[in-house]
């Protein structure tokens, strides 16, 4: 399923226009991204949680040439499935 299919389904089940469903979906994912960017974490009961892990820069090596390269610092988002989702998927 992709985003436009999610929007179509949402519009049908909630009896709203596609425009409303599209707005909701964009705000939903936009809010999660904003929260993580500002250092907050996101917890949605039954679904899961999103959090950011911070990685410092380090000297790495190109495994092919052996040349030293500086790997810049980075932040990566992680998702941990909640209990309800974990159980549903594993049924």
């Amino acid at each position: 399923m992709n985003k436009s299919q999610l929007i179509d389904k949402l519009a049908v089940v909630t009896n709203q226009t596609n425009k409303v469903a599209e707005g909701s979906v964009n705000i939903f994912f936009g809010n999660i991204k904003q929260a993580l960017s500002s250092g907050d974490k996101v917890e949605i009961r039954g679904f899961g949680s999103f959090f950011l892990k911070k990685y410092e820069s380090y000297m790495g090596r190109n495994p092919k040439t052996g040349a030293k390269v500086l790997v810049p610092k980075k932040n990566l988002p992680f998702f941990r499935a909640g209990k309800d989702l974990r159980e549903k998927v594993n049924e």
Partner: peptide
């Protein structure tokens, strides 16, 4: 209702083994 159903639709898709792709997100 919008939020509950977004979560429900995503969960149902995963429950059926179908992956969920949101461009720009993941």
């Amino acid at each position: 209702q919008q939020v509950e159903q977004i979560l429900e639709i995503i969960k149902n898709s995963l429950e059926n083994g179908d992956s969920v792709l949101i461009s720009g997100f993941g």
